[in-house]
Design a protein around this nucleic acid. Structure first.
Length: 521
RNA sequence: GUCUCCUUCGUCUAGUGGUUAGGACACCGGGUUUUCAUCCCGGCAACGCGGGUUCGAUCCCCGCAGGAGAUGCCA
């Protein structure tokens, strides 16, 4: 078709430029890991090719679409820092980008297919009486492991609508039956295509769902019709989507063929699974990006980790900024096999990023958690930020997620009024020992003061040596007295942040507990 | 059931017709440390099975097994 391709020279530029890809979520639930991974791959692919990334909202299921879900798509994109070149919000030359605003289009194209004899009105089908699944996203629905078998066969369409007599049609029309539009699928032959990730895939036409519905009786298109029409109209060149779409791709190809359109390239992405190997869902743990966000994962950690689910760069590198991925991403490195989502590795990534974060930014990210505990003025003031900043050295390397800050600094913002004797007393020691050690340790602190932390440190060590015991024995009772816990940030720094005055009271309180324990021995 | 896809350490993955099959997380051990954490060092651990092709297969082909997905007027 290209007059220049006689010499075979002009094919290359076509491959490299003008790539147009899209992410086409349906606003039925919060954006989840799998969806976002697809979005990311599309985005990176577009950027790496200098192409366009389109966001299209597929809200053709009226009953399951929700405005909050739509908002969540935008929020998630913004949080991750990925911008669509064309979207419902930014607009673009191929809009509208919301399918519910395009229904006339689908109807018109469905009619075109009917006129061409490639589709037909079916008056025999009635909607499933099954109640719609309601407001929940698919992931929220508990699966019944054993019911899957009957599904395919039970209510399968058997082409009766294909040859209904005119009289019969009139009768049903009169009775108020609203027809659906079905694609006429030739039962012989096969459809095959070359998937950019998977290679050649073929499927016999008779194995496809029998004459699938294109237009529902409510006038809305099904995914199959809408996605083909829109991808064509929006001049999408590459469809990158999850592997769960592989089985219906031949169907889509048949639709392209019926219209006489050239189909785009397809690249089916490996799915994201839970620990047990089934599609990642609620019961595996958090799945939506907002949830991770709330718990205190950083966007760069999420992005980095998710991108590595089914894609790799080489044999060792695993840290990538968004900018780097925009350049380095390539289809060739996509894996075929599904990937299991590993929450622990995500934690590790997050910890790594947390430790690298500039102070200002870390303080900013942490502040909402402090506010939520009521430990700052609301809104937080400069003094609150400075206070937190001072705590950073004490807590930073102890954070896996931002929310971890709360238990770590609680002792500074809330009174400690109870001490457990068991924690106060080091192993193999008596309450009396602990009491003495606590007294001694505190005496050292009082004597040296808190100006010079190293000096306190030294003095404590010296004191321990003098009475011939481990520093730990000296410090543990003091740590528990100060923080109320045997696990805490570094002691001297903690006391310093608490202040001598408050620390003194806590030591006294703990001392009382030890005395009581000693006498009851 | 049928159809489609997939198969390297527990997990994410690199890799080649001849490698001690590499890295990371997790795990285990050791070190630093004041608890926890960080950090450092070390260790454990994989080519699903059976046939071919080949001088030689983890890699190529076939079969099997296992897993997943699809089978909706959901996407």
């Amino acid at each position: 078709m290209n007059p220049d391709d006689r010499d075979g020279y002009n094919r290359q530029p076509l491959m490299n430029n003008n790539a147009r890809v899209r992410y086409a979520p349906s606003p039925t639930g919060m954006q989840h890991i799998g969806g976002v991974r697809t979005a990311l791959f599309n985005y990176f692919f577009a950027r790496s090719r200098g192409g366009a990334f389109v966001l299209r909202v597929e809200d053709t299921d009226q009953s399951r679409s929700h405005p909050e879900a739509l908002q969540d798509i935008y929020d998630t994109f913004e949080w991750l820092g990925i911008a669509a070149d064309e979207s419902p919000r930014t607009g673009g030359p191929y809009g509208p980008y919301v399918q519910s605003e395009r229904i006339d289009l689908y109807r018109r194209y469905a009619e075109e297919l009917i006129a061409a004899g490639r589709a037909y009105y079916d008056y025999t089908s009635v909607p499933r009486d099954e109640a719609p699944r309601g407001a929940n996203s698919r992931d929220d629905v508990a699966e019944e492991p054993s019911e899957s078998n009957e599904k395919g066969t039970a209510g399968a369409y058997n082409f009766e609508g294909r040859h209904l007599s005119p009289e019969e049609i009139e009768k049903r029309k009169a009775a108020g039956v609203v027809p659906v539009v079905r694609l006429l699928i030739p039962q012989d032959g096969k459809t095959e295509f070359n998937d950019l990730v998977l290679g050649t895939i073929k499927r016999k036409n008779k194995d496809l769902p029998p004459d699938p519905i294109l237009l529902k009786s409510d006038g809305f298109p099904t995914y199959h019709l809408a996605n083909v029409v829109d991808d064509h109209l929006m001049e999408i060149t590459h469809v990158l989507r999850a592997q769960e779409w592989v089985p219906s791709t031949p169907l889509h190809l048949l639709i392209y063929e019926a219209f006489g359109w050239d189909p785009p390239e397809f690249a089916h992405l490996p799915m994201v699974m839970g620990k047990d190997g089934s599609k990642l869902s609620k019961r595996h743990g958090s799945t939506s990006v907002v949830e991770f966000r709330r718990q205190g994962y950083l966007p760069e950690a999420i992005m980095n980790y998710i991108t590595l689910l089914g894609w790799s760069y080489d044999d060792s590198r695993e840290f990538f900024t968004r900018e780097e991925l925009e350049e380095l991403f390539s289809l060739e490195k996509i894996n075929k096999a599904p990937a299991v989502f590993d929450y622990r590795k995500l934690d590790w990534f997050n910890g790594q990023y947390l430790r690298e974060l500039p102070e200002d930014r870390l303080v900013g990210e942490l502040m909402p958690y402090m506010e939520a505990e009521g430990w700052t003025s609301v809104p937080a003031e400069r003094a609150d930020r400075e206070r937190l900043r001072a705590l950073l050295p004490l807590i930073r390397e102890r954070l896996k997620v931002l929310g971890d800050v709360v238990p770590l600094v609680r002792f500074l913002f809330e009174d400690v009024t109870e001490w457990s004797a068991e924690e106060l007393i080091p192993k193999k020691a008596t309450a009396r020992d602990a009491g003495r050690w606590l007294e001694l340790a505190w005496a050292v602190v009082e004597k040296i003061g808190l100006e010079d932390q190293d000096a306190v440190d030294q003095a404590l060590r010296a004191a321990a040596e003098e009475i011939d015991t481990k520093v730990g024995n000296l410090l543990m009772p003091l740590r528990v007295a100060i923080t109320g816990s045997s696990v805490s940030p570094p002691l001297v720094g903690s006391i310093r942040e608490l202040g001598l005055e408050r620390a003194r009271k806590r030591v006294a309180g703990a001392q009382a507990v030890l005395e009581r324990a000693a006498t009851s021995d």
